[in-house]
Design a protein around this nucleic acid. Sequence first.
DNA 1: CTGATTTTATACTCATTAGTAAAAAACAGC
DNA 2: GCTGTTTTTTACTAATGAGTATAAAATCAG
Lengths: 199, 199
Amino acid sequence: MPRPRSFDSEEVLEKVMVRFWEAGYSATTLDDLEKVTGLKRVSLYNAFGDKRELFLEALRCYRRVVVSGRTAPLRDSSRGLDAIRSFFQGLLAAQDSGWPAGCLMVNTSIDETHLDRQVLDLVRQHFQAMENFFAGALERSRLSGELRAEVPTQAAAAYLLTFVQGLAVLGRNPETSVRVRDAVDLLLEQLDSWRVVRD
Amino acid sequence: MPRPRSFDSEEVLEKVMVRFWEAGYSATTLDDLEKVTGLKRVSLYNAFGDKRELFLEALRCYRRVVVSGRTAPLRDSSRGLDAIRSFFQGLLAAQDSGWPAGCLMVNTSIDETHLDRQVLDLVRQHFQAMENFFAGALERSRLSGELRAEVPTQAAAAYLLTFVQGLAVLGRNPETSVRVRDAVDLLLEQLDSWRVVRD
DNA sequence: CTGATTTTATACTCATTAGTAAAAAACAGC
DNA sequence: GCTGTTTTTTACTAATGAGTATAAAATCAG
């Protein structure tokens, strides 16, 4: 007998996520969120709790929708170097995908202000997951004989993680985002130099 | 006959810069700045103008003190690849130099909120200067016969810029900052692979 | 020591914004 | 239709924080 909810939580959450992604936590006001979602604050509070909880949900939504979408299809390829290559090509493609530029997790990690325990955990988990994604792909490529023995897995994973984070910064500014392709092209060459069979 | 100013502008500005660097623009309150500088708001307003102008001065201070300190000594070396190597080793050393982790310019570029024209220009100039620093060093190393012909200057400069920005993100979180050394080590190897005489 | 002038101190204003109280409207089941 | 529950609407509260008015204190020239 309760009146049914007139909106879809996931849709609302995506809009909220995009707003946080573009503008950051503190610069996103409840008025903004009302405008963006078409809901009233009270409905938002009712459905998701306060602003911080909404932010946490947005971070989880990001992980679900954006990150998983880019990494999950690549997780099982035994050709790990190709998976890594595909990942970075996916980043290039994402530049005109409609999503905001950059990375919500990177933005959040910079914005140390609002890093309470939960937010911090989510961000840390994300970075760890990215590093694991790279390390896993490298290990698979090692097992399949693709990878040169001298390439150290952990350091290479950290290297790639650094690069992704750099791209997130570079991509966020219109002025520098044109360099993203150049940088990625060179990284892909670097990746090839890690192959057993050299260019 | 006017009463002389009882503080040194440059010292005050450094403290302000550090605070903005750690906490970001909007999370830094005037109360904070009072605490950090030991001055009263009125003195700050009197000496520097409003919060935004203070922020602009802090950005300029950063460029003067931090960035120039790291790049100026390396600008003239004809051995450009060595200069680049020294730059990244300097970043490692800076990890326990007392300055906050990360990079104020990167932080600011992420925090798009407060990017009015002037702030945006300063950030853009900084990124351009960094790219030029790398491009210049690469060109010098090309002229001195150090650099392999296949390495494209502009793309390589963008690559290195990406990496620096990535390090600024990685270094800001205690959890990931331990990876900075690994990542830099691999980058330095990568640099060596750009030399005419291969490892 | 005195006066001119600037810096400091105290206390305020005003705008913004997160969060809430209370009433009105909408919906499902009977 | 009527009832009970939830959502929506409207309007408010309370806190924070940038910026300022005004008076007191400090410094140098003469």
